[in-house]
């Protein structure tokens, strides 16, 4: 797969602070590439540099073979951008906005089809200010796609949406990807990254901490499994601590909490079965992307 976006050694500082210390990443054609990190990690600055809205202090960026600053005019035709802080005039209606923005591009998508596809058809004559948060967000996505872009950058796509609207938006993004558009998704929601992204760049304090698939990241973090249960009769802890798969056993009231590697669950259940102990209220906590994130970024978690 050819690279659609290449960022090498990006560095950007504002008057008082360094926003991006050192970011390098490559986005392949047709993938959903996530940029994940806590607030203030430098995610938005990175994508703003990719979109040509800011000039990097150092580093090289190519998007579809173009230089985002030098070839701005050409880039804007191929790149759809949905920004965090990009609104529309209050009284501009949904259909008017889509029709207007589609006239900006040489080969636009059919804006009516987009409007229907995004469930905005019954709001065609509604002014921007009267739309709900979810509708505004969907319109914003539609405007990023109305130019028929090869690449779409979506910044904090589902922030402020209710859970249902969030899930609907995810479905939508998967639909867009299946039509061949490469997507760069900026987010600080683990669940969103885990669900949508083929690959993720973890960014913290202006640096790329890791680039991998969501599963790869959790594996890389080597987070132990935690198994928790209530034994049906008193249990000698040495039965468990002697297992090579188990690294620790603690008690929490009548509950036993066992931590260990990926095979610990099998080993523990086998030992319990041999000793005719039933594990009541058994719960296994899998390492989540969230824990991987905390581990890989040294414990700093996104604020929401």
């Amino acid at each position: 797969m050819p690279a659609v976006i290449e960022v090498r050694d990006l560095h950007k500082r504002y008057a008082d602070k360094v926003a991006v210390e050192d970011v390098s990443l490559t986005v392949q054609e047709g993938e959903i590439f996530g940029i994940l990190g806590p607030n203030g990690a430098g995610k938005t600055t990175t994508v703003e540099c990719i979109a040509g809205l800011r000039t990097p202090d150092r580093g090289e960026i190519t998007v579809c073979g173009l230089d985002p600053r030098r070839d701005r005019a050409e880039l804007t035709r191929r790149l759809g951008v949905q920004l965090q802080a990009g609104q529309l005039p209050d009284r501009l209606q949904v259909a008017e906005a889509l029709e207007l923005y589609s006239s900006f591009y040489p080969r636009p998508a059919d804006w009516r089809a987009l409007m229907h596809g995004l469930g905005l058809a019954d709001k065609a004559r509604t002014g921007y200010a009267k739309l709900s948060g979810g509708q505004k967000q969907r319109l914003s996505i539609a405007l990023a796609l109305v130019g028929n872009p090869r690449v779409a950058i979506l910044d904090e796509l589902t922030t402020g949406l209710d859970p249902q609207a969030r899930r609907d938006t995810w479905d939508l993004i998967e639909g867009v990807r299946s039509s061949g558009v490469t997507i760069v998704l900026v987010t600080h929601f683990m669940e969103e990254a885990e669900r949508l992204c083929d690959r993720l760049a973890l960014i913290d304090a202006g640096r790329v901490v890791a680039v991998d698939t969501p599963a790869g990241l959790t594996e890389r973090a080597r987070i132990e499994q935690r198994i928790q249960f209530r034994p049906s009769r008193p249990l000698d802890e040495r039965l468990l601590t002697s297992l090579p798969e188990v690294s620790g056993v603690t008690r929490r009231g009548e509950l036993v909490v066992v931590s260990g590697n990926d095979n610990a669950l099998n080993a523990v259940t086998a030992v319990l079965a041999r000793n005719r102990i039933v594990a009541e209220r058994l719960r296994v906590e899998q390492a989540s992307l969230e824990e991987a994130f905390v581990q890989l970024t040294g414990g700093r978690l996104g604020s929401s």
Binding site: S102, V176, S178
Partner: peptide
């Protein structure tokens, strides 16, 4: 969903 496959020939 094929929202984008309907490029208008405009």
């Amino acid at each position: 969903m094929s929202v984008l496959n309907t490029a208008a020939p405009v």
